[in-house]
Design a protein around this nucleic acid. Sequence first.
DNA 1: CGGATCGTTGATCAACTTCAACGGTCGTGG
DNA 2: CCACGACCGTTGAAGTTGATCAACGATCCG
Lengths: 194, 194
Amino acid sequence: MFDALRNYINNYASSQISEEDFDLVKQAFKHKKIRKRQYFLQEGDVCKYTAFISKGAMRQYSVDENGNERIIRLGIENWWMGDFESFVMLTPSLYNIDAVEDSDILMVTNEQMQLLRAQVPAIEATIKVMDQNRAIAYEKRIRASISFSAEERYLELQKTYPALLQRFPQTMIASYLGISPETLSRIRKQLAVK
Amino acid sequence: MFDALRNYINNYASSQISEEDFDLVKQAFKHKKIRKRQYFLQEGDVCKYTAFISKGAMRQYSVDENGNERIIRLGIENWWMGDFESFVMLTPSLYNIDAVEDSDILMVTNEQMQLLRAQVPAIEATIKVMDQNRAIAYEKRIRASISFSAEERYLELQKTYPALLQRFPQTMIASYLGISPETLSRIRKQLAVK
DNA sequence: CGGATCGTTGATCAACTTCAACGGTCGTGG
DNA sequence: CCACGACCGTTGAAGTTGATCAACGATCCG
């Protein structure tokens, strides 16, 4: 259960995390199984935990006034899931997060995370790299949304995170790209011809 | 010249930075005056420095195959400017950065920044808060780009960063929002009527 | 087996872009 | 200090992209 997280840390921190340090990590995280369609977070609630997905697939989305779901993040194994703003500021979330497949997650509060960060150098290092990577990934996505057409954004996603295309239904991919399912269907048809 | 930076740090770190610590900061940063239209970074170059804008206004943009400028970031006093990916990874940048007004900037390399971070607790604290705020701001912008119409994105910008609207020509604001200058002009006309 | 979900396709519609022209303002070089 | 050119914002018309509405077949799951 914790192996995925251990590998993740060892991969991000430059050195291996010691057994004692990893015990601290284990104590800070709560394991939870979450079934397909089950909520991890509902709009209006505070996102008290951030979750490391050790198995499964999840999504974060808001619902507009017409009832349309707008997916702003997708996550699978070895990704983190949570509403960052709500988690850090302890404000009510604008988002829902639920499982798209049966999932195993490891949950931690921000308080525990900050403690771990201070106690365990490997965690501190991991978080720094994560912060960097997140900033870079977000900048790319912002650039794509300003500069690229729907087709280009789809191709970019296909190139960057091909795994997501296999794990989530096309409707969700479309929503994540900010386009309608019909448009994505037509783009794929179009690309198949080429 | 360094006052803006000192205030910035004192504002972000929970405690005041000591005089000795701030001397270290002063040594790490290089001051530079940069004239309107002058480049801070050109596409293809590595972004060796990140800049704290102590006075002035700058923009980061890419140029597409048709010669259109796509602005992905605007910055004024007390904001940081630089291509984060290039700065961290030392890869050639896809962007240009130039001054929109005559500006005073304080420049630092990533290496020096990491050293400062290790030596000066106030810098470490400041960067942590910056990382958080950046992530939150980026998530909002991604959400806006997926979910909101051009008019809604303009209103959001007006609400969140009204100062930007005063400092940059409308053409640049339009580019930053990912819409054409004509569309922004019509949106503003439309809103004026209401 | 039956209902729900998913992807596809066609037709129409709305949002936004592009192209073109014009007037105003600002900064600069003569 | 003035005149000129560059840039900026505005407006109109036409064109494109993608959204919406609607219908249908396939598949999956209970």
